[in-house]
Simulated scan of single mutants.
Amino acid sequence: MSCICKIKEGMGSFTETEEKLANYILDNRQEIIMLSAQELADRVKTSAAAVVRFSKKVGYKGFTALKVEMAKESYDEAEDFNTIIKENDSIETLIKKSEAINTKAVTQTYKLINKDILQKAIDSLNNCKNIYIFGVGASGLVAQDFQYKLSRIKRIAIYQQDSHIQLASAAHIGPGDIAIGISYSGETREINVALRKAKELGAKTIGITKFNNNSLAKIADFPLYIPSEEKEIRIGAITSRMTALLITDLLYLGIAKNDVDKTEEYILKTREIIKAFK
């Protein structure tokens, strides 16, 4: 998972001191790798202990580990777009902006992936009894897509469109089951209630949410992150829907490759029955 990306995505959850540290690090990346924790602290007018705490908050054992990861990264980044659309944009501009924003979102999503957590989530899905999926609104569309893909390879997942029925289904989850909650904000009440209930009943939980210290990320045994969006482009669930689909596709592929021969057999069977209606 990219160090720079983690710092950028964590901005919404940082304290004032942590935000100052984050901004200084992002603005002085090449200098940072040459500084000690105390030297960075002096520049930001804080303590070395605060620098270490910040490093741990973004996922590293200490400031040295953070610097090592930062030194590995390339600093050639695409130009950011502050807004997705303007009234006088031509169709050509609109296409270019859409391409740039979506390309950036895809790249950031893959950078945010923690391979160990993803592997544990896939292993749990391959060994579980039942799969329960929770999502409302645009996240519900992602849940439906995942349910459909799983059905094609004979892995039946339980998803209900009505949020109240979703909560009712959560009451029947048990040990050996998996509950997957999808929520960009991580604060969708129905999803968090369902996943808390699943944990209470002994099930493992997967959360697909933005990279932030939100409630869903805290609840989930296996949090899988998608990028945060700028407020200006939150005119609809555009990149959040796409990036959540990238995560569920990875989960699907991880399940499918567990037994490639069986997967191929099941897909051929579903294709044959659908062909009968064409």
Rank of each mutant, 00 (worst) to 15 (best):
N130P: 09
I274K: 15
F54Q: 08
K57T: 13
D261I: 10
I274F: 15
L94D: 00
L245M: 13
D123F: 11
R29P: 12
D89Q: 07
R189W: 03
I156C: 06
N258D: 13
A256R: 14
A237C: 00
T93V: 12
C3R: 07
G10H: 08
L251I: 00
V106Y: 09
I165L: 02
K56R: 15
L35C: 03
I238G: 05
A157E: 13
F54A: 04
E69G: 13
L118M: 10
A37Y: 05
L40K: 03
K57Q: 10
Y184S: 02
K111R: 07
I206Q: 04
F54K: 06
E87D: 12
V260A: 14
E19R: 10
I233Q: 06
R196M: 14
A138C: 11
L66H: 04
P227Q: 01
R234Q: 10
G236F: 03
A256T: 12
K61T: 08
Y60N: 01
G59V: 05
R152Q: 09
L195M: 03
V193G: 11
P223Q: 00
Y110W: 06
N114F: 04
L66F: 01
R241K: 11
F146H: 08
T209E: 05
A138V: 11
A100V: 03
R234M: 11
L150S: 11
K61F: 07
A220E: 01
G174K: 05
Q30T: 15
I113R: 03
I7D: 12
T248P: 06
R271V: 10
I91V: 12
Y148H: 12
I238L: 12
S183R: 01
K45T: 13
K72E: 15
E99A: 07
A100P: 09
L201D: 10
S36I: 03
F146E: 08
I91G: 09
I95D: 07
A105T: 12
I182N: 01
D76I: 14
E39R: 14
K210C: 13
T109C: 03
I158R: 12
S169C: 14
D42A: 14
S228I: 09
I178W: 08
S124E: 15
T93C: 04
H164W: 13
A65G: 09
V106G: 11
G202A: 08
V58N: 02
L118R: 00
S139F: 01
M11C: 11
V58F: 03
I235Y: 01
E265I: 09
Q161L: 14
K72S: 14
I226P: 00
Y225Q: 03
K97P: 00
I238V: 10
Y252D: 01
I233A: 02
Q30S: 15
G135K: 13
V136I: 15
S228H: 03
I122K: 05
A168D: 14
F211W: 11
K231L: 07
A256S: 14
N127D: 11
